[in-house]
Computed example of a mutant assay.
Amino acid sequence: MKNELDSKYLLQVFDKIRKFGEKKGDEYHLNGIKAFTDLDGYTLFIEDAKVKLSFGFHSQYHFDYESRDDYESFEKKLKAIDKEY
């Protein structure tokens, strides 16, 4: 995930979290990452304790985080999920 978010990569990680994660209500939890969708399923949310990512229609996305370190830690978690599962 550089300046441009790779939508195929993100959807792949989201799918792995849903397949291998623990379901709690409408959310899936895996390796410190939580993934869920809005009611209509058009917007995906992937977050940990410090970073929130929303990914929606036409590949629009928004990150919410306070520090670069938080973002980099989040990115490492996503890469680990992608590699491990």
Rank of each mutant, 00 (worst) to 15 (best):
A49L: 10
K76V: 11
Y9N: 04
D64I: 12
L5I: 11
K19F: 10
H62T: 14
V51Q: 00
Y61G: 01
Y71P: 02
L5M: 06
K34P: 04
L78D: 05
D15M: 08
Q12Y: 13
D15Q: 13
H29R: 08
F57E: 07
S7N: 08
N31Y: 10
R18P: 01
F63D: 03
A49V: 14
S7M: 04
F57T: 06
D48P: 12
D48M: 08
Q60Y: 07
D15I: 12
E66I: 12
K8D: 12
L5D: 03
L10G: 01
Y61A: 03
S59E: 10
S7F: 07
L39D: 06
K24D: 14
E27T: 11
S59D: 10
R18N: 12
Y85A: 06
D6C: 07
S67Q: 03
A35V: 11
N3R: 05
K50N: 14
E47A: 10
Y65G: 01
Q60H: 08
E22H: 10
E75K: 13
K19Q: 15
K79N: 13
E66C: 04
E84T: 15
K79L: 15
I46L: 08
M1N: 08
D15R: 14
K83F: 10
N31F: 11
D64S: 15
G41S: 01
Y28E: 05
L39C: 03
T43Y: 00
D26W: 14
D48Q: 10
H62F: 06
